[in-house]
Design a protein around this nucleic acid. Structure first.
Lengths: 202, 202, 202, 202
DNA sequence: AATGAATGAGATTTCATTCAT
DNA sequence: GATGAATGAAATCTCATTCAT
């Protein structure tokens, strides 16, 4: 219990500091201090810094996956699900403006070919594309579903970088609004089977 | 002259390696070796690593600025200028897919508030927004010019991250195409004053 | 009983790993894992790593001593006893070629003056010299018995190192054969008193 | 010059301490302190501890090779050369009794298959076997030359271990004497061509 | 007796920066 | 201006040992 706490604390501290300062600029000493754990003890839980980083990214992945599941469960309309997802990034715009996206940040400064952390992090985007793609399919855009999903996350990532560069959370607000409008304008080409029953598209 | 050469070589090597491997993962020794200059000599030209990084980012800024000027000089239609700018990113998509955007990369893992390098780098985006904003104004979108400019670079940055994450240059090709189509669809609301003379809008 | 088992397992694992990898290159964690005993529990049985090493060397000593006793019991002729002892090293030449002699290895990289482990290990050689010396005495070489015994073990140790250095078990085979021939050529200067009664030498 | 001195001092200190305390028990801090060089500076000369160890073993190899050359140059009779070589070990018996053989020591506690240091060290024995083998050939023992050379070094190595184990330099004196007697007893089966002209064997 | 967790000292290594010439 | 060498702070990691239960 207490132990579980420590390991979780380590992972959380790592995730937090990696987000704030980046992978390389965050030392294990920083993480240990943030988690209030003696540095020697870190190695009881994680054999290497990379292991801890992998765990941190995995946790982020799971958190995002859980969030997507929640959206799918609680919202019937796939379009609304996507809109809600986008709105999330509008809500946390201050955080992202200060520190960037915890996922995009890692993708940006790791080597996709050689670094296992990069690959583990990329899965978070892959998950999103799979989930969002599914929503687009449900809207009848089977053909373009994946491309649209990528475009959606691309919009969020780009907006995050611009917001950070200009230190203007408003940029994220503007861009996510644009994305929402885009989503709202997408025609529903298919009769969808929502949770609550049969509906007809406009 | 020779000295000037050395300094330039240092700056170029720094810019190249910062792009490839990031700010922190690139050591001064790496840069010195790449530029074929003895480490000890680096400090004759730059007081600190940060100074060299600042110079590298400044040079990038100047290169981009020169490119924008060139576009403005050589292309009459502001819309075409923007399209040409976007197409540049399509052309170098392989490089950006491997290493990310040299500007966005720095923005992502530096602290906007405290780090002078971050601020110097942000100017590159600011330049773009100023330049692209001017083009949008010339298209009669005075009101939204800046927002549109930001949106444009946002699209490029986002596409770069997604392309890198999936190791698919095609993503950059797709997204830049989307941006070009968007640019083509923007109405020209104004009588534009091209280089060659007065024109009338539709 | 169970406890005894655990302690024995620890000692055996320690002896095995010390032989394979040496004293310093073997961590307590390695030993505990090999013995399938939780690390924390090791310290119930042994106060320090050195204590465990001492126990491991003591066990080796006892095993060798038992083997000498067995030879003395089962073989009447002291010369044959020595030959049999030498042949043992020929039989296990592959093991010794890979890992060296478990005794010589420790002797080699410990400080005879300060390290109790070194001293405990040296007793294994002392035992051999005492036992083999006794055989030489029984062959009537009272004067040179100890020197001959040392020479015998010296031959085995040297051959082990050379075999390991060249990764050629054959070297151990050759050298032990040479030693056997030497043993066979030693004149029996004395009427020996075997187990079964009085015998005359050839 | 001064630099060369430092590098040499590092190598010499490393060789000395590796001999005294073994590879693993010697820390870079120990070596740096012994050479009176700040530890950070060690890495200017050697990228890793293994690199330094390799350099130290290489220097030993060169020293031994130089010694063999000297023997070949200064002594006409190959038998005398071998005897002189063996006598060397008698002379330094106190050192070897305390610390063991610097070569055999490394061979003993490294993994011949995986460790480059082990392989580099084995070359020292290979050199000896090549050189001593040549002497045996010149004595007309072409067939057994290599085996005899190995046997010779085997005798020295074994004696060293026994001398160290019993803390008795006399053991090394005894065994080297035995080896010398063996060498003296070897028949010269060949007409040898000495430096000074043609000679006939006894 | 048993055990997972905890701890700190010390090892190797990297690197921006400084020094001496 | 130029340069190889020097330096120390800090990072990652290992491990014998101890603690708490």
């Amino acid at each position: 219990m207490n132990t579980q706490n420590k390991k979780e604390r380590l992972i959380d501290s790592a995730a937090t500091l990696f987000h704030r300062n980046g992978l390389m600029a965050t030392s294990l000493a920083d993480i240990a201090k943030h988690a209030d754990i003696p540095i020697g003890n870190v190695y009881y839980y994680f054999k290497t810094k990379d292991d801890l980083a992998l765990a941190a990214m995995l946790k982020r992945r799971q958190q995002f996956a859980a969030a997507y599941s929640l959206l799918s469960e609680n919202i019937d309309d796939p379009r609304e699900r996507l809109i809600e997802a986008v709105n999330y990034y509008a809500k946390i715009r201050n955080d992202y403006t200060k520190f960037g996206c915890p996922v995009g940040k890692i993708i940006n400064d790791t080597d996709m070919e050689k670094d296992p952390i990069a690959q583990a992090t990329a899965l978070i985007f892959a998950d999103f594309v799979a989930w969002a793609g599914e929503q687009f399919k449900q809207l009848g855009h089977s053909q373009d579903a994946q491309k649209m999903a990528i475009s959606l996350m691309s919009g969020i990532q780009g907006a995050t970088i611009m917001a950070k560069s200009f230190s203007q959370p408003q940029i994220l607000a503007d861009e996510t609004l644009r994305l929402v409008e885009w989503l709202e304008g997408i025609p529903n080409k298919k009769i969808t089977l929502g949770k609550a029953g049969i509906r007809t598209s406009a």
